[in-house]
């Protein structure tokens, strides 16, 4: 999802604000502007992002299994295994750890990238 959103965001920032202003000027309300102008313009980027995310998700498990040796256990596979034998409490704990790891990684990324607002033109 984040990849798809970033791609769409990048193409949104590429749109000249006066194009949307022109539509408003001709009598379109904000919903109309979004439907007629903004959406068609970000469509290609949106689909590219989505396709990328889809391919990534479909191949994720196999890629990880391929990368590590057999003595390692894959966490998502473990969660699946736990739920299959109806041990939801253990699965929940593992889920929580997984979420924590992802959030931690995102947090570190955010610190490394710094203030993202700097790169955006203030209007």
């Amino acid at each position: 999802m984040p990849v798809g959103i970033e791609a769409a965001k990048a193409s949104l920032l590429q749109i000249d604000p006066s194009i949307e202003e022109a539509a408003t000027d001709l009598g379109a309300n904000s919903a109309r502007v979004f439907k007629d102008i903004t959406l068609p313009l970000i469509k290609p980027a949106w689909f590219t992002g989505m396709a990328y995310v889809f391919v990534h998700c479909m191949t994720a498990v196999s890629a990880v299994i391929f990368l590590v040796s057999a003595k390692w256990n894959h966490m998502t596979v473990l969660i699946l295994a736990q739920t299959e034998i109806l041990r939801f409490s253990a699965a929940s704990v593992l889920c929580l750890i997984l979420i924590a790891i992802v959030l931690l990684a995102f947090g570190i990324m955010k610190i490394l990238i710094g203030d993202t607002k700097l790169s955006r033109a203030s209007s």
Binding site: S18, I19, E21, D25, N29, L41
Partner: peptide, 20 residues
């Protein structure tokens, strides 16, 4: 009034044509 409720039209510096 918002721009879409005003009876005015603007010709922009960048033309702002709808590319699609």
């Amino acid at each position: 009034l918002p721009p879409n409720k005003r009876n005015s039209s603007m010709v922009f510096q960048s033309y702002a044509l709808f590319p699609h």
